[in-house]
Design a protein around this nucleic acid. Structure first.
Lengths: 195, 195
DNA sequence: GGAAATTGACTGACCGGTCGGTCAGTCGGA
DNA sequence: TCCGACTGACCGACCGGTCAGTCAATTTCC
């Protein structure tokens, strides 16, 4: 039977959902198997351990996320627009993939030691990406001169505030889009070169 | 023996340290007992379960943190200075109490379901506090009119970026203080009322 | 002496990972 | 065309290790 990869996909999806719901130790492998409609043994056919499965999810989820952000920025001309588009896309991603987002973005500071290095690599990739946008803006005069590294980190930090907003719909009445736009506005004001 | 509370304190400290080092399930109660110089049973004299101990830490840690922020803001006159002082104090706190910070700030989006409500309460308290500073600034004209709720969340998000910076000393050469100052600058620029 | 505090050996639940068995599908030979 | 030996994906009952939490024994202090 050629279901192999199809089942592997189902396992990944189920695992993503469940790991997104509660922390690692509260997730039973058997439960993932059930949700994936698969025997427990089958999971070990594809992943050598629970932890390997978890880190596969992390990697896959992050790749999807990162790809989307990059794609959102690419078509734009001005750095300002790129940044705005990235904010939008970030928001859109976490709305569509709340579970994934919680894992790949929410776990930055908390990860298990074994995965820390990989996590930091991804974090650096993300801030690096934002930083290139900032540099671009500074280079062409859209933004004031600034410490791009620091601000890039700040922006990534704002991303996680949007994450929390989405996950828990913390107070605040209006829609989410306006939330993201306001964040972007606030951010861009801090960047703008005009006095 | 009246050591009760003294031992309880040692337990809390040890637990804080260890829970700060790695995730919940990788922490053995016995290990906490050892580090606290106490028998395992004694822990159960003070806390009915591992989870209760964990949530006690969360609460205690957050209270300390929050108190410090409030205290830092109080003596200042202008909202701008208050905000700056809060940034400083936040940084100072996470430098001094990395383990605690990792738990109380780093775990926002990831918490175990049972503790979620409490976590959200704390999160609301924190953003609420920042928001009052913003409102104050807006009221006396230091800041432009803005959606204080949104920006408050953004600022709390920036706090977590500083946390990651401290925890992992991600790239960036210069000292941490300047890091915090630059964040505050960036932030205040986005707030300033002057055109 | 004894009440209170402390302890750590012990127990039982729990769950990650294994492994022998099943069975659908394949294919060479009759 | 049919058969049956073979393959390997799939499964879930089971095993063994790991702790959280208990409690009888011990120590501490009055």
């Amino acid at each position: 039977m050629q279901e192999q990869s199809e089942k592997k996909g189902r396992i990944l999806i189920a695992a993503m959902e469940i790991f997104g719901e509660r922390p690692y130790d509260q997730v039973r492998v058997e439960e993932i198997a059930e949700r994936a409609g698969v025997g427990k043994g089958t999971i070990y056919e594809h992943f050598t351990s629970k932890e390997v499965l978890f880190s596969a999810i992390l990697e896959e989820g992050f790749q999807d996320y990162f790809r989307e952000l990059v794609a959102a920025a690419t078509p734009q001309q001005r750095a300002t627009d790129k940044l705005r588009a990235v904010f939008d896309r970030h928001l859109s991603f976490i709305s569509r993939h709340a579970a994934a987002a919680r894992i790949i973005i929410g776990e930055w500071p908390v990860t298990r030691p074994e995965l820390q290095e990989a996590m930091l690599g991804r974090y650096a990739l993300l801030t690096g990406f934002v930083e290139t946008l900032l540099r671009e803006g500074v280079a062409n005069g859209e933004f004031r001169p600034l410490d791009t590294a620091v601000v890039a980190q700040a922006i990534v930090g704002m991303f996680s505030s949007l994450l929390i907003y989405i996950l828990f719909s913390v107070q605040v009445q209006e829609g989410v889009e306006s939330q993201a736009q306001k964040l972007a506005d606030f951010c861009l004001l801090g960047l703008a070169s005009r006095r």
